[in-house]
Amino acid sequence: MKIMHFFPKSNGLNFLKRFQEHLEGNYNDGYQHFSKTDDFYEVLDTRINNTDIIVFTAHGEPTHIVGEQKLGRDVLLTLDDLGRCKHSFVFAFSCSTGDLGAEICRQHKAIAYLGFKDIIDLVVKTEGRAFSDDLRKILRKMYNDALCKSFNEFLGKNYNVDQFARTLSRNLEMVYAHILAMSPEELKVNFDISLKVATNSKFLWHLRTDLLTTIDGVRKRIVVHGESEFIPWLFIDTSDPDKLKNLIEKIEKCVYKDDYNNYYKYFLLWFLYNKLGLTEDANRYLRSSLVINLEYVKQNSFLDEYEIAELKQPG
């Protein structure tokens, strides 16, 4: 399991470089960044039986994600191309890709998708575009702060996708509340705006009203498709047996929407029971997983052919 990040060079997205640096700095060898579609496809084609966290920070439309430019034209990542997301979790910070995400899960068996069902408005709309540059600085830093914090919580606290979505929404709200509590001097230092602007009553009014409208609009657009109970197996802290037992209880109770995706639920339970040294329970779940998706178990369990054959035996 890796974090595979597609972040092409594109107008209006350079501010998300900080999010990319955050992922690279925090997840090291488990992170790969791609700016070219061909490079991205080449690696995904080798990982079709892996469960990765595939992150898109790119422009989007209802039918595609927008890649880099080639010969003056945008490369479009369509539904057919995104069949390479099979078995993976897709997090798309891309406008209007909610319906596309639903089809990636339904047609191509991506295990889950979190993204946005409409345009993510990156501009604070004020009358006469007053203070638009200053508000844009604040808004973009807010996005980065909320994304970084939410991603850390998702992986560090073993959240499922539905919890990740709620965390992202909550963190956008919390970052906004933190900004409102700042003094003019703090606004100046944190967002590189002039003290004259930071003390302007009209600017502060826009900060309290128009910025809130923009943030609420983004929060309402967050959407989840596929298995909202999905938890990334490789990032689970296995050092605390009590936490593992609680996680097992939670996962055993969850119901996946698509029966096929139970291969992952059973594989995850095998992994957790194995870490507790409960071999009989672990193997029971691994047998159930390999019945649904043998190639996935071969790829991810690191068992040899003899061990797989043994598991296939009745009883």
Rank of each mutant, 00 (worst) to 15 (best):
D281I: 01
K149H: 07
I120K: 01
G98N: 00
Y266K: 01
I236V: 15
D38Q: 14
T167G: 02
K257C: 04
L207N: 03
V124N: 12
D39P: 00
Y260E: 10
Y256N: 07
F19Y: 09
L247I: 06
T78S: 08
L180A: 08
D237T: 11
I65Y: 02
G67L: 06
Y143K: 02
F93M: 13
H33E: 15
H33V: 15
I179H: 06
I119R: 09
K257G: 15
L114I: 10
C254S: 15
R18P: 08
V255Y: 10
K137P: 02
C148Y: 00
D45F: 02
C254F: 11
G226V: 09
K2C: 03
F302Y: 15
L311S: 13
L44P: 04
L100V: 02
D162E: 14
L195V: 05
F235A: 10
A130F: 03
E68I: 05
L147I: 03
D118G: 13
G72P: 08
H108Q: 01
K117Q: 12
F40N: 10
L286I: 06
S169C: 04
D52V: 12
A309R: 12
D240N: 15
K257Q: 14
I236P: 08
L212P: 04
R106E: 06
D210Y: 06
T167E: 06
K188V: 03
K141S: 13
C148F: 02
M4Q: 09
D81E: 06
S228Q: 14
F164K: 13
K220V: 00
N152R: 12
D145P: 02
E249K: 14
S301T: 05
A198N: 04
I222G: 04
C95D: 05
L244E: 11
V175F: 05
L122H: 05
N26L: 12
Y176V: 02
I236E: 07
L76A: 02
Y176D: 01
S169E: 09
A112C: 02
N49S: 06
L211H: 04
V90F: 00
L82C: 10
N158K: 09
D134E: 15
F19R: 00
S201F: 09
L168S: 05
Y263C: 06
K149T: 11
K36F: 11
F302C: 14
L77E: 01
T214F: 11
D121K: 13
R136K: 15
T213D: 15
K188F: 02
Y256A: 05
Y263P: 09
V297S: 06
V224K: 01
L155D: 01
H178P: 01
P8D: 07
Y273E: 08
A130C: 03
N49W: 04
C254Q: 15
A110E: 07
G30K: 15
V189M: 12
H225D: 08
D80R: 01
V90W: 01
I308T: 08
T167S: 06
E186N: 04
I3R: 08
D162L: 09
S88R: 00
Q32H: 10
N152H: 12
Y159H: 12
E305T: 14
L290A: 04
L187M: 12
N26Q: 14
N283W: 11
K265R: 08
V175R: 09
I248M: 10
A282G: 00
N50H: 13
D80K: 00
E295I: 04
R136S: 15
E24H: 08
Y260G: 03
F271G: 05
F302A: 14
N144T: 05
E186M: 07
N152S: 15
V291D: 08
D52H: 07
D240M: 10
A92H: 04
V55E: 04
A130V: 04
